[in-house]
């Protein structure tokens, strides 16, 4: 990681834990850097070996396919040695605490620890105890900063500027770390953010987050530039938060008809994995306005940018 001296710093912090920790200029710099990686990723040779010799551990306490593989590919394209650990199937089931697991891994001297955990705040707790750079890959219902960054990058590629855009975030905001990170990032960047959901799926006092609150798609989607759908967990639509899948689909599922309420050509986004026929209709998910697959592509670029930026702040551990 000798190049860390020659590359200018992107942001101050040692870790990437939350969007709320980032400044507007830091977000812009990260997105600019990610945009260059998006280009690199479309080349035949995708490697950019700035992290050769570095070790990246993906420590996932909660199952994930796309985020984990996205981080893995990002690390490998930058030349890092990447190891995946899915903890639910190992130490924790033997009674080890989160911190003990992290300390064990820390002792092996990794440079990056990418962590997902089902409890809000767990990644921050862990970051206080380890000596490497920690990246939050999703903690409980709190934050998922790389998702918000990749969403912003995707929007920027289509609509140039985030400022002044109307973004409708629809669905289960209550349980969504994606929504919280997106609200934080988009409002910081000057977008007008709306949340659209049945009241049961909105956190208390959400209006204080600087968003407009709507309980119908008709009002919430009107003139939106971007429609961002959220995943609804199956267990939450069986009568505890909303009555059923079919009722949710009827009132909140994004169909072609409902999409017409938004601006012509409005972007359709979804962090995945999708419940087709619940929060989104297949015709919309696969339709011309959908940028859902591009979000996945941008995910790798954003994660490369984050690893790159954090490596610039590292002092030699030796």
């Amino acid at each position: 990681m000798s190049q860390s001296d020659t590359r200018p710093p992107i942001f101050k912090a040692q870790h990437l834990l939350a969007v709320t920790d980032l400044s507007v200029s830091e977000i812009k710099s990260l997105l600019n850097l990610a945009a260059t990686y998006a280009e690199v990723n479309r080349n035949a040779d995708k490697r950019h070996m700035i992290l050769a010799g570095a070790t990246q551990v993906n420590l996932f306490f909660e199952n994930s396919t796309r985020t984990q593989s996205s981080f893995e590919i990002a690390g490998k394209r930058l030349g890092a040695d990447v190891m995946n650990m899915t903890v639910s199937s190992s130490s924790i089931s033997k009674g080890e605490t989160v911190l003990d697991t992290a300390m064990t891994i820390n002792a092996m001297q990794p440079d990056f620890l990418v962590v997902r955990h089902q409890s809000s705040g767990a990644v921050e707790l862990l970051s206080q105890k380890v000596s490497c750079a920690v990246i939050n890959a999703g903690d409980g219902q709190h934050e998922h900063p790389t998702q918000a960054l990749l969403d912003a990058l995707t929007i920027r590629r289509h609509l140039k500027n985030l400022e002044g855009l109307t973004v409708a975030i629809c669905g289960d905001v209550y349980h969504s770390r994606v929504a919280r990170s997106n609200i934080a990032l988009l409002t910081k960047m000057g977008a007008r953010v709306r949340v659209v959901a049945p009241s049961n799926l909105l956190p208390s006092d959400i209006a204080n987050f600087g968003v407009e609150v709507f309980s119908t798609m008709k009002d919430g989607l009107a003139d939106a530039d971007v429609v961002m759908m959220l995943r609804l967990q199956v267990e939450r639509m069986a009568g505890s938060f909303v009555p059923s899948e079919r009722e949710y689909y009827h009132f909140y599922g994004l169909t072609e008809e409902k999409l017409k309420l938004a601006k012509p050509g409005a972007l359709v986004m979804h962090p995945g994995p999708m419940n087709r026929g619940v929060e989104i209709d297949s015709a919309v998910a696969d339709g011309a306005q959908s940028v859902i697959r591009e979000q996945v592509e941008m995910g790798v670029a954003v994660r490369m940018a984050v690893l790159d930026a954090l490596s610039r702040n590292m002092r030699s551990q030796a």
Partner: peptide, 9 residues
């Protein structure tokens, strides 16, 4: 008394 019925529909 356990799960909400389909009130809207």
């Amino acid at each position: 008394g356990e799960l909400m019925a389909e009130l809207g529909l």
